[in-house]
Computed example of a mutant assay.
Amino acid sequence: MPLNSKKDSQSVRTRIGKGVRLILGLVTVAASVYFINVNGALAEAAVKIPAPAIDVAADPNISPQTAVFAGGCFWGIQGVFQHTKGVLNAVSGYAGGEKETADYRSVSTGKTGHAESVLITYDPSQISYGKLLQIYFSVAHDPTQLNKQYPDTGTQYRSAIFYRDANQKRIAEQYISQLDAAKVYPKKIVTQLNPLTAYYPAESYHQDYATLHPESGYISQFDLPKIVNLKRLFPDQYREDPVLVGSQPMVKTKVPVEK
C-alpha cells in the first residue's frame, strides 16, 4: 500500500518498532545462553569478555568516527550496532574486494575477496572504538569460526576488522592478543585485520533487514538473540529503538564510501 503522507510513514515505522520489541520480548523469555540451530547443534552464544586494556578515551571534541566489522551475514552485525548507544548509523555493505564485484550476487560466490561488512558511524564522546570491539567480539559474532558463521559458510562470511588507521589497527591487535591470552574462548581467535581502502554499501533491500523482517526464521533464530544478548550483557550501551539507515545523514570520512 503506498504511503500518502509523512504521517503514514511514521505510523508504519511505529508498527514495525512495536513488532520488533514484541518479538525481542518473546525471544528474551525463551532464550538461554545458548540457542539451537537447524541442525540441532549449539548456535552462537554470547561470551562475557573483559574490556580492552588499551582504548581511546571519550572526547567530545572529536568529530564522528567510523569502524568497519565483518562477521557472518551483515544483517545480524547491523542489527546489533543499530541497537548500540552512540552509534549514529550502521550500513550493511562490502569490503575487501573491488568495486566491479561489490554486489550481492558476486559476493555470494565467495570468490571476490569481499566480506559482508557493516560500516559503523559513531560518536566518540558516547562510545569508544574499544567498546565497539568488545560488543563485536562478545555478542555480534563468534570470532573463532574460520570463514563461517552459523549457518553461513564461505570467505564472504569471515571474521574481519577493516581498520581505518594505525591507531585502530593497534587497538584491535592488542585486544585480540589480550583475549587469546585470557582464554575466554575455547579456540583461538581467527579474526583478520585488513586496511580499509573502500567501502561499498549493499543493495537497499539488505538495509535494516533485522528490523523490517523480525518474522523471518533466519532473523529470529540467529540475529534477534544477538540483540537480546546485547541488552543482557551491555545494558548501559543498549538502545531500545534502533537507529535506521538514512535516519541520519552519512558522515564524511577519510575512507572512500563508493556507491
Score class of each variant (00 low, 15 high):
residue 4 N to R: 14
residue 5 S to D: 10
residue 20 V to A: 02
residue 21 R to Y: 02
residue 27 V to Y: 07
residue 34 Y to S: 15
residue 36 I to G: 05
residue 40 G to E: 04
residue 41 A to T: 14
residue 51 A to M: 09
residue 52 P to H: 01
residue 60 P to L: 03
residue 69 F to A: 05
residue 74 F to W: 10
residue 75 W to Y: 06
residue 77 I to P: 00
residue 79 G to T: 05
residue 79 G to M: 05
residue 85 K to Q: 12
residue 86 G to I: 01
residue 88 L to R: 06
residue 89 N to L: 10
residue 97 G to T: 01
residue 97 G to C: 06
residue 99 K to W: 13
residue 100 E to N: 15
residue 100 E to Y: 08
residue 102 A to G: 07
residue 106 S to L: 11
residue 106 S to R: 14
residue 110 G to R: 09
residue 111 K to P: 03
residue 113 G to C: 08
residue 121 T to V: 12
residue 137 F to L: 06
residue 139 V to L: 07
residue 146 L to Y: 10
residue 146 L to I: 08
residue 150 Y to F: 13
residue 153 T to V: 12
residue 160 A to W: 05
residue 161 I to R: 00
residue 161 I to D: 01
residue 163 Y to L: 08
residue 164 R to A: 13
residue 169 K to H: 12
residue 170 R to M: 13
residue 174 Q to E: 15
residue 178 Q to D: 10
residue 178 Q to C: 04
residue 182 A to M: 08
residue 192 Q to K: 11
residue 195 P to W: 03
residue 197 T to F: 14
residue 199 Y to M: 07
residue 200 Y to C: 02
residue 203 E to Q: 10
residue 206 H to I: 13
residue 206 H to W: 07
residue 212 L to N: 09
residue 216 S to Y: 14
residue 220 S to H: 09
residue 221 Q to I: 12
residue 241 D to A: 14
residue 242 P to G: 06
residue 244 L to Y: 05
residue 246 G to Q: 10
residue 256 P to G: 14
